[in-house]
């Protein structure tokens, strides 16, 4: 995809510290807490700088509490940075939040915006008024989005009767009605099963490609951005650990998979001698494979021909381990 070379989001030296009360131990601690509370300062975002160009799809990935959502909330103007500068379309979100809201669409995971008891079309109509969209433009835009997201047969059914996947499509339409230049997706896949996650990925790709919307999404699961070609920003302890192409990270760190297998027959140790075995019993084995050395398909085909498998689990390397390896390589 051809991207225009214009920076539309620029972040420089962004910092945010949260102050939280520390609970002192014991009964006396409870009383001391009331009169002289101790505070702990947590650096949520520590000196983050980055530029995002028009039409880019950027994923902020990091463990829980890494500072991704805090960064996103500062970008949308609902949290105020302690220091540093943010410019979105040349404007400071903490000062021009309302103005920028016309250019930004947001989806916060598990915080739906559709009216639960009413059909989606009612929410769409209301948002058209909220964003002061001209009626003719709105009708055209809505028609386009209805076709793009294939929701024409569900817009008149109450939201509570829709499936999670259908609801999500409607949530996307709602967030895109005002034709935002930028879309923020904060943990959009949280609480979703694999199938809905897949739909979500397809939707994100579609919006980025067809609508040319600049997208920033956050997730604690690196697997979420599989198959979306994206710029990856890994954040840990409020700092950027990695900023670059997802492909590089994938080849370097995500080729490892963790397999867990339960069988009906006895497991033969010889079959696994070239692999890193983590746990083994008579009918159960847990081992790591590097997919560039041993392609996953081959391994699984072999296992299924040799053993009667009753259960199989294939897991990605957790983001914490990826980060640890990146740190190790940087040293």
């Amino acid at each position: 995809m051809k991207k225009e070379n214009k920076t539309i989001i620029s972040i420089k030296g962004l910092k945010k510290t949260f102050k939280t009360k520390v609970t002192k131990p014991g009964m006396s601690g409870i009383f001391r807490n009331i009169f002289s509370p101790d505070y702990k300062y947590i650096k949520a975002v520590d000196n983050i700088s980055l530029d995002i160009k028009k039409g880019e799809l950027v994923s902020f990935i990091g463990p829980n509490g890494a500072g991704k959502s805090t960064t996103l909330k500062m970008l949308s103007g609902i949290l105020f940075p302690d220091s540093g500068k943010i410019k979105i379309l040349g404007k400071d979100p903490s000062k021009k939040r309302k103005e920028l809201s016309y250019d930004i669409g947001t989806i916060f995971g598990q915080k739906p915006q559709l009216w639960f008891h009413l059909p989606p079309i009612d929410s769409f109509n209301l948002f058209a008024k909220i964003y002061d969209i001209d009626q003719t433009i709105y009708k055209e835009r809505l028609d386009n989005l209805i076709n793009l997201f294939e929701i024409s047969d569900i817009i008149n059914q109450p939201v509570r009767k829709l499936s999670l996947g259908q609801r999500m499509r409607c949530e996307f339409v709602l967030a895109l009605l005002h034709n935002p230049k930028i879309l923020f997706l904060d943990e959009p896949t949280i609480g979703m099963d694999i199938i809905v996650k897949k739909t979500m990925r397809e939707l994100i790709k579609k919006i980025n490609e067809k609508e040319k919307t600049t997208i920033i999404l956050t997730s604690h699961d690196i697997g979420d951005i599989e198959n979306i070609s994206t710029r990856l920003v890994i954040i840990n302890h409020g700092e950027i650990v990695y900023d670059g192409d997802f492909k590089n990270i994938k080849q370097k760190y995500l080729s490892k998979k963790l397999l867990k297998i339960t069988t009906e027959d006895k497991i033969d140790e010889k079959d696994f001698k070239d692999l890193t075995v983590i746990k083994k019993s008579k009918y159960y084995i847990e081992f790591e494979i590097e997919t560039h050395k041993f392609p996953l398909k081959k391994v699984i085909d072999f296992l299924f021909t040799k053993y009667k498998i009753t259960d199989i689990g294939i897991n990605e390397m957790p983001i914490e381990d990826v980060i640890e390896e990146i740190y190790r390589d940087q040293r």
């Binding site: 909330k73 103007g77 609902i78 939040r97 809201s101 915080k111 909220i130």
Partner: peptide, 10 residues
């Protein structure tokens, strides 16, 4: 945290 939805609207 629902307030995030409201504060990002005009």
């Amino acid at each position: 945290g629902e307030i995030a939805n409201y504060l990002t609207k005009p």
